[in-house]
């Protein structure tokens, strides 16, 4: 099967003009401008199969948005090649643009002063959506996202979360096969994030759509993606299963113990990171987990014991910190 997204040695270098502060530097800048190269993305490689939902992680400035913009066709790569559905995105061929969508947290594609439903009619003409399919799709999206009243109000009167819902629905009306989602839940409250997540998951499953999602909310990634690509300083740090991320980047596990006698001092068994509601959490090097738990069970009356990977946020912190050192 051909990959939906195929990226080979993809690079993007920006040339930025810079000058020091002050009047003298400003005057000098008129005659001679200092140029500086910023390598936003450096020779990255990955493949995404049709129907896959992949999380795209990285700290601010890692190159996520630049990559998503190159894949959608807004930016020309300075090196390497990206192919999406067999097309070179930067050519922005009509046939290509019809099959993709780019959703960003601050996207304004709807006309501000009119209800979203009226903007949807415009999208119908732009994407040449079949009238019956269009009607069905709108009804369905309105139902799933619970936005019957929202699509009838001028967009400027909607709250941020409401606007994001109508924007996302608008971005999917033409049934794109590939979705580039850049922080789609930015600024939304938790129930709204959950709803948007569910909507994206259902859409992808039903349409067999391929999704590349960047988000700062690990909950988005955990809920939607089995596979993650971690990008840091323009390069790929990790590409694989989300579960393997923890295994690869953390050297510790979390051991949670509920002793029968809560007054016991357990500090001799390892580094305690948390102690509340009768439970004690230890941070234990992976290799020491079997020995430590065996010792605990033998020596202390235990009501409950669990061994967990650290929370994904902590894993990501470790990953980014490591990336910065390497």
């Amino acid at each position: 099967m051909d990959s939906a997204v195929s990226v080979h040695d993809l690079s993007k270098t920006y040339i930025v003009h810079e000058r020091s502060s002050g009047v003298r530097a400003a005057v000098r800048g008129i005659f001679r401008r200092q140029k500086k190269e910023v390598k936003a993305v450096q020779a990255i490689n990955f493949e995404i199969q049709p129907g896959e939902i992949v999380g795209f992680l990285g700290p601010n400035g890692a190159g996520k948005t630049t990559t998503l913009k190159m894949l959608s066709g807004l930016l020309y790569p300075t090196g390497g090649e990206a192919r999406v559905l067999g097309h070179l995105p930067h050519l922005r061929e009509r046939q290509y643009l019809r099959q993709i969508t780019l959703v960003t947290g601050q996207r304004n594609q709807l006309i501000w002063d009119i209800p979203a439903a009226d903007s949807y009619d415009l999208f119908k003409a732009i994407y040449e959506i079949d009238p019956d399919l269009y009607k069905r799709t709108v009804e369905e999206f309105v139902e799933i996202l619970d936005m019957k009243d929202l699509v009838r109000k001028p967009v400027r009167n909607l709250s941020l979360g409401e606007r994001m819902k109508v924007e996302i629905a608008g971005s999917l009306l033409h049934h794109p096969r590939v979705l580039f989602l850049d922080e789609p839940t930015l600024g939304l409250d938790v129930p709204m994030q959950r709803r948007v997540r569910k909507f994206i998951a259902e859409y992808s499953q039903r349409e067999g759509a391929t999704v590349l999602l960047s988000s700062h909310y690990m909950a988005d990634v955990e809920a939607l993606c089995r596979r993650v690509i971690v990008i840091h300083q323009g390069g790929i740090l990790f590409d694989g299963d989300l579960s393997a991320l923890a295994a690869r980047f953390t050297s510790h596990k979390k051991v949670i113990v509920k002793p029968a006698d809560q007054s016991l001092d357990l500090s001799g068994y390892g580094e305690i990171v948390e102690s509340e509601l009768g439970s004690v959490s230890f941070r234990v090097p992976k290799s020491e987990v079997p020995g430590m738990t065996a010792r605990l069970l033998a020596e202390v009356p235990i009501v409950d014991l669990a061994v967990e990977d650290p929370p994904i946020e902590d894993v990501i912190d470790v990953v980014f910190a490591k990336g910065a050192i390497e």
């Binding site: 501000w112 002063d113 009119i114 009226d118 415009l122 003409a125 732009i126």
Partner: peptide
């Protein structure tokens, strides 16, 4: 035909918007 449809649909949408800017 596609462009004509876009022109017409955009005209309608912006007509609605323009009335908002009385």
């Amino acid at each position: 035909k596609h462009i004509a449809q876009v022109l017409l649909a955009a005209f309608k949408a912006h007509l609605i918007a323009t009335f908002q800017y009385r």
